[in-house]
Design a protein around this nucleic acid. Structure first.
Lengths: 185, 185
DNA sequence: TTGACAAACTAATATAATTAGTTTATAGTC
DNA sequence: GACTATAAACTAATTATATTAGTTTGTCAA
């Protein structure tokens, strides 16, 4: 295989993610990514399927990264400790990757089986942690949704600057986690 | 003032909102809104300040609508009843106006004092309901953030199709509210 | 050395947003 | 009832982005 340049799918996604986190997701265009990589726009099509493909690639990458981070956070911990650790890591992932995080919301469509799989894996990490609580199976699934809702709502508002007032956001987050844990058993 | 046509700022925003809710927020462009109204694109500039102005107008409109809906829901109710009523209305607002709801996240920038005011009013509704709990003042503000986080996270995931599995979302939502209320006093 | 081919390129097209400048319809005035 | 000022429409032109088609080029392997 003759790589004319050191470029490939992964490198393109990385460049896009870097732009998204530094300049904001809305500034990620084929034009800006191509400029970042020092190539012309159409050349990107050798590595991603247009803008939609780029965004899909970012989402897939992001879900993998987040899943791995959560799994690592919960390794060797149980119950409330594990929940707390995952929550903290979830938030710090979103705060350090605000642009990338925003791509995660895209619902995987029919064809995007890879993204659907990755999302399922993310779900499984949380489910594994909840296993220690011996919840009825449906109840565990509801709690996965509730965990995600709480985390996503908080960080999405935080990233968007929705918490305007001068009130410690760390405090709010800790209270949120406390409420989640209190509601769990 | 000679209105050549029955068009004004409000009518433009309404058309945009209708498009956003029916076709998705991403399909709201100056082109699509102009087409919807039967005018050419530049004519829109007589009523809104470009795409940014249109989006700002939608956000402002949405915050007002949601605030009013929440206030109405909580009128004549107290404590858990009021919280529950607000939560249900918050969710149904988001589900009936998925496109409009997505515009609400935009953080009000410095100049957008009208949007900042509207956001403050939304916050006040929730604060008024929490008053019945006699929380310490900071604690009440934290709880406002927590309420918003829970609501936003749930509906944002729901709208995005993030709850893929065959598990009743109404059930999940009710459990979420229960956890919120349990964490309140 | 050469040839296959992946990966770059140029060129052309379509859509969107924006600005500048022009036309037109109506509301209020004479 | 005609006149005029003006808001609100318009056309035209510019810029940016995404996409597709077709061409060139550099490198790896034979």
């Amino acid at each position: 295989m003759p790589p004319k340049r050191g470029l490939n799918h992964e490198a393109v996604i990385h460049a896009a993610v870097e732009l998204a986190d530094k300049q904001g997701l809305e500034s990620v265009t084929l034009a800006s990514v191509a400029a970042q990589l020092g190539i012309r726009i159409p050349s990107l099509y050798n590595h991603v399927s247009g803008l939609a493909g780029l965004q899909r690639g970012m989402a897939l990458y992001g879900v993998h990264q987040l899943t791995e981070a959560l799994r690592r956070a919960a390794t060797g911990k149980a119950k409330a400790d594990a929940i707390r650790a995952m929550a903290v890591v979830y938030r710090s992932f979103a705060l350090t990757h605000p642009g990338l995080y925003r791509t995660l919301l895209r619902a995987p469509s029919e064809e995007e089986t890879d993204l659907a799989e990755a999302s399922a894996e993310l779900l499984n990490v949380i489910l594994d942690v909840l296993a220690a609580y011996d919840l009825e199976s449906d109840r565990a699934l509801h709690m996965v949704r509730i965990f995600r809702s709480m985390m996503h709502g908080f960080v999405d508002l935080e990233i968007a600057g929705g918490f305007a007032m001068a009130l410690d956001t760390d405090d709010t987050f800790n209270q949120l986690i406390d409420i989640l844990i209190k509601g769990l058993p």
